[in-house]
Design a protein around this nucleic acid. Structure first.
Length: 467
RNA sequence: GGCGCCAUAGCCAAGUGGUAAGGUAGAGGACUGCAAAUCCUUCAUUCCCCAGUUCAAAUCUGGGUGGCGCCUCCA
């Protein structure tokens, strides 16, 4: 069965057939690095990371490219505010980006190209667009001529005439048409600038993605992703530029994630209702944020609130508890006929079916829950589970985790001293319990809870975990 | 003004023709010194409203109501 993906180009689900069998080229619009990323920026990161992980898990050879827009008006402005150069601002927030991405367990892309390191490629592409009669030069600026490109508006489902009917028209402009957009901007005084055939200047926003995707993935490639707010004009412009320069080609499948909302309003920089990811990470771990983001289909809107993250936390704990029980049962496992083989096969099939259907992570997570429930019941009913079952179940969790990226807790190194002290405390508590000294026992349990260690007494002894 | 999306339990959320997944919260029970975790049972005669198509609709069609988004930097 083929993977089905919803392609914005045709507004429908289609069979995913890569250009080259077994290989996928994937480009995703990355952040403009003038601030820490907010939760709205985090969604495409996690969504497309998950899609990439799934394609890898399904056996495709994936080349994943995500750019950094490291030169732009907002970066320059921020530099003035922070008294740093544009390059310093970009470097600062790119470093911060990688910290945030790591917290979300987003794997680094194969290539993270930066605009400032690809000026040559961009200039060459702009020249091609001019040579092919799709752009014009005005006083050191270069503009794309949308009227030269009949397909303009196809991705976003709008016609040039419709847009002009009701839209506010930019005034006092040198552009021939209000929808023409800058490929190259002439330098203003005291701004970073690069040499070009049209004078000193810098690239427009859209051209970078066309130039860099072409460089690393070729003129035609498989998947292009990004937030739904990039459909127009950014992605529309990318298509126009790339096809104008290369006489066709470009991305075959356009995937767009829905928005994060706050009180049902879009979280956005202009509305000022955004939450920086690092502020959220003060209260909830990256795994929880990731789980929250994947518990809704990627094209649907998700509303943000602490309550929703709290629910995500509880849900993820249920899965993790099941995994703890599995790990614990290893000690008492024996060689015995496997009983879970079919359960595991069903869970895996349900997971694959869900992910194959336009990466339905919400349904895939449900498959994980169903499996946890079956596994818990099995481990409860069997004092001596089968080693084969244990091994296969662990592998299934590993599979789930390699795709969803937050099922299993990350290996955390406890400092030796703290670990030793905790063991000592637990021994003292066990002694107290032996004497039915419940006051001491509960005092220790409550005290540890206050520092984030949860104790659970089981027939096999006490078990602890971080809250 | 143009284009588009959404409406499922207290909350979150799958499900696009065959008789409502999953999570969370709640209720009862088992286990426990008490908890926690886990297990068992329970929790939408019904999917915003109205009409239609069909043997059959949350799912399709038409109309209505409500909410949101894009058209401008935005993921």
């Amino acid at each position: 069965m083929a993977i089905r993906v919803y392609n914005t180009t045709h507004n429908q689900k289609e069979d995913f057939i890569p250009l080259v069998e077994g290989r996928v080229g994937m480009y995703c619009c990355g952040p403009t690095t003038y601030n820490y990323i907010h939760l709205g920026n985090a969604r495409p990161l996690v969504v497309f990371d998950t899609i990439r992980r799934y394609l890898l898990w399904r056996g495709f050879e994936v080349t994943y490219v995500q750019n950094f827009t490291d030169i732009d008006d907002k970066i320059i402005k921020r530099g003035v505010q922070e008294n740093l150069s544009a390059a310093q601002i970009a470097a600062k927030y790119i470093a911060a980006y990688f910290e945030d991405a790591q917290a979300l367990r987003v794997l680094p892309a194969d290539v993270h190209p930066k605009v400032t390191e690809h000026i040559e490629d961009i200039v060459v592409m702009i020249q091609e667009i001019i040579d092919n009669g799709h752009a014009y030069v005005v006083d050191g600026d270069v503009y794309f001529d949308v009227t030269s490109f009949p397909q303009y508006g196809k991705l976003s489902g709008r016609a040039l005439e419709d847009m002009q009917a009701g839209a506010r028209v930019e005034v006092g402009d040198v552009k021939r048409n209000p929808w023409d957009f800058a490929l190259w901007k002439a330098a203003k005084p005291n701004e970073p600038a690069w040499e070009s055939p049209w004078g000193m200047g810098r690239p427009g926003w859209h051209i970078e993605c066309s130039a860099m995707s072409c460089k690393y993935l070729g003129k035609e490639f498989d998947i292009h992703g990004g937030g739904a707010d990039l459909i127009f004009p950014h992605h529309e412009n990318e298509i126009a530029q790339s096809q104008a320069a290369n006489s066709g080609g470009f991305a075959r499948y356009w995937l767009h994630n829905g928005f994060i909302t706050v009180n049902d309003e879009k979280m956005s920089k202009s509305l000022g209702n955004f939450f920086l990811l690092r502020d959220i990470l003060e209260k909830f771990s990256g795994d929880i944020v990731r789980f929250y983001l994947l518990s809704t289909h990627y094209r649907s809107p998700i509303d943000f609130s602490d309550d929703k993250l709290l629910m995500a936390q509880k849900s993820l704990e249920r899965i993790r508890n099941s995994y703890y029980l599995l790990q614990e049962s290893e000690k008492r496992a024996v060689e015995a006929p496997a009983a879970l083989t079919e359960t595991i096969a069903i869970a895996k099939a349900a997971f694959v079916e869900a992910m194959d259907d336009d990466f339905n992570t919400a349904l895939a997570v449900a498959a994980v829950f169903d499996f946890c429930h079956e596994l818990n019941a099995y481990l409860q009913d069997n004092v001596q589970p089968s080693t084969t079952d244990i091994k296969d179940a662990k592998q299934l969790f590993a599979d789930f985790d390699s795709v969803l990226g937050m099922i299993l807790p990350q290996e955390q190194s406890n400092s030796g001293l703290a670990e030793d002290l905790l063991q000592l405390i637990l021994e003292i508590r066990t002694m107290a319990r032996g004497k039915k000294d419940w006051a001491t026992s509960d005092f220790i349990r409550d005290g540890l809870k206050n520092v984030g260690i949860v104790l659970e007494d089981t027939p096999q002894g006490v078990r602890w975990k971080k809250a």
